[in-house]
């Protein structure tokens, strides 16, 4: 019989290794797939710097002009809360930092658990609200494919199980912790083959757009 501790050991051990392997393999494959498609050189006389433009757009796309903000206020605000929350919970929670320390060999400051807990709740709510928006908003519903909902689910579950583990909801902590880790592993496996890749590729996308505009002397 597999006890919850056995389950926890299993997801902390072999499953995590497998998930890491698929995650890292998939990402390096996907990034190389993109880069290897290359792009043609631009022969037009530059008016500005590709480098400056590219660097600029890496950041500028996180800010919005007034009219765009007004038109998409909901998506922007909820999206911001969700992404920031996810970042804080993922990278500033002490147990997570220990995991990264194991991989990278260095660590950074973590936030008190109570704060992480609060941020998790906010992030979960933001995600729920974004899901409702995806289902209700004509454009988002129209654009959404099965993949969008898969991606939402595999992102939502680690947050939810993490929250439940901390609060010992439904199952005892060891089992819930195991489920939490498993849900992250599912996320890792799904990651390279879905839109979740935008985490990395958005920098490439912003760079290309910014560099092209920079070349033309436009700040985008």
């Amino acid at each position: 019989m597999m006890t919850s501790i056995d389950f926890l050991s299993w997801v902390r051990g072999p499953v995590f290794i497998m998930a890491t392997a698929i995650f890292v393999f998939g990402i390096s494959l996907r990034l190389l797939e993109i880069v290897s498609l290359r792009r043609k050189p631009d022969y037009s006389a530059p008016r500005g710097s590709r480098m400056v433009g590219g660097m600029r757009t890496l950041f500028s796309r996180s800010m919005y002009d007034k009219s765009t903000f007004q038109r998409s206020a909901f998506t922007i605000v909820a999206g911001y809360i969700f992404h920031l929350g996810l970042f804080i919970v993922t990278f500033l929670s002490v147990p997570h930092i220990l995991l990264f320390r194991e991989l990278f060999g260095f660590d950074w400051f973590g936030l008190p658990t109570i704060l992480i807990d609060a941020v998790t709740v906010i992030t979960l709510l933001a995600m729920l609200v974004l899901l409702i928006h995806r289902l209700k908003n004509p454009v988002r519903r129209f654009l959404s494919t099965f993949e969008n909902y898969v991606v939402w689910t595999v992102t939502f579950l680690p947050l939810l199980t993490g929250y439940m583990a901390y609060h010992h909801s439904v199952f005892p902590y060891p089992l819930m912790l195991g489920l939490h880790i498993l849900s992250v592993e599912i996320l890792m496996v799904v990651f390279p083959f879905t839109q979740l890749m935008h985490t990395f590729t958005l920098f490439m996308a912003r760079w290309h757009t910014g560099a092209n505009a920079g070349h033309r002397g436009i700040q985008v």
Binding site: V35, L37, R39, Q195, H198, T201, M204, A205, H208, N212
Partner: peptide
């Protein structure tokens, strides 16, 4: 026609729908 920027663009879209509003 498909090149690295195109691949990066399609890989990055999360169907947020903001382009519709533009």
């Amino acid at each position: 026609q498909i090149d690295a920027p195109i691949a990066a663009y399609f890989s990055s879209c999360v169907s947020c729908g903001m382009c519709a509003e533009a």
